[in-house]
């Protein structure tokens, strides 16, 4: 049973068609990688799913609900969490406060004028931070964290929204190889624990082939291959446009 169904997604910028009729589906428990050369339309695809861009045509359905035209914050409430290619956190707040903000938002408690925010949902936030290995740094300001740690904070923030689907845009960019494997292993185990579905883009082929359960390949706005990692790796079209011939 598919959680997310994308059909015939299209989007042009000026005269350039960045995404030309992309269709795919994503089921709970899947870790789906979206790969392709630079400029293939991966980021555009992501922004179309998450509501930052509006498609020219096509549908995006989550559990049967049409997401097209909804702003990012509504799509988030329907269960789509997201991490960004360049980490986006609240730099002036501590790690824990970043996660607490998400809980406050979920509980519709953002307009409170009186009760201090510092104590709200702190235990819940600490539990999540513990899960991603950031509990020890819970009270450090996000502005001074190392990049890899920020990625973990983002993951905790995404989880705090209790998503059904996690969109991760180059989740391991800017991390060392060891850290990359750790983060993706953590993601995979969260998928199992929570019955999540993950869609991610990535340039690191070790990460892609090591952690994706399925792969879709985008080239010049169109899907050119789809399937389990081994099949995609062996696909001659994929090798031609992207992977290069095997050494």
């Amino acid at each position: 049973m598919s959680l997310l169904v994308v059909e015939n997604l299209q989007r042009a910028f000026g005269g350039v068609k960045a995404v030309r009729g992309v269709s795919f589906a994503l089921a709970a428990g899947e870790v789906l990688a979206l790969i392709g050369p630079n400029g293939a339309g991966k980021s555009t695809c992501f922004n179309l799913l998450n509501g930052q861009l509006r498609p020219d045509a096509g549908t995006v359905r989550l559990d049967g609900v049409d997401l097209v035209g909804l702003p990012p914050r509504r799509i988030w409430r329907l269960g789509v969490g997201r991490t960004f290619q360049i980490t986006a956190t609240f730099a002036s707040m501590t790690v824990a406060e970043n996660v607490q903000m998400v809980f406050l938002s979920r509980a519709h408690r953002l307009l409170g004028l009186w009760t201090p925010a510092a104590g709200a949902f702190r235990d819940e936030a600490l539990a999540l931070l513990d899960r991603v290995g950031m509990a020890a740094q819970a009270d450090r300001p996000c502005g001074v964290l190392a990049y890899g740690d920020l990625k973990r904070v983002e993951l905790a923030m995404a989880l705090a929204g209790d998503p059904k689907i996690l969109l991760m845009d180059e989740p391991t960019a800017g991390m060392a190889p060891g850290e990359r494997q750790d983060l993706m292993a953590l993601t995979s185990s969260l998928v199992r624990e929570r019955g999540l579905a993950v869609l991610f883009t990535e340039h690191d082929m070790d990460v892609v082939f090591g952690h994706a359960t399925r792969i879709i390949v985008l080239d010049r706005g169109q899907l050119i291959a789809e399937g389990p990692p081994d099949a995609v790796r062996a696909d001659p079209r994929v090798q031609a446009v992207y992977l290069g011939s095997p050494a």
């Binding site: 988030w76 986006a88 956190t89 002036s92 953002l110």
Partner: peptide, 22 residues
């Protein structure tokens, strides 16, 4: 209070704020 934190959240990163329902 949450009101002030939310205001700062929008200042620090509007992108992230919108992505968590603000």
């Amino acid at each position: 209070a949450p009101f002030g934190y939310t205001l700062r959240a929008g200042r620090d990163s509007a992108l992230r704020a919108e992505a968590v329902g603000i």
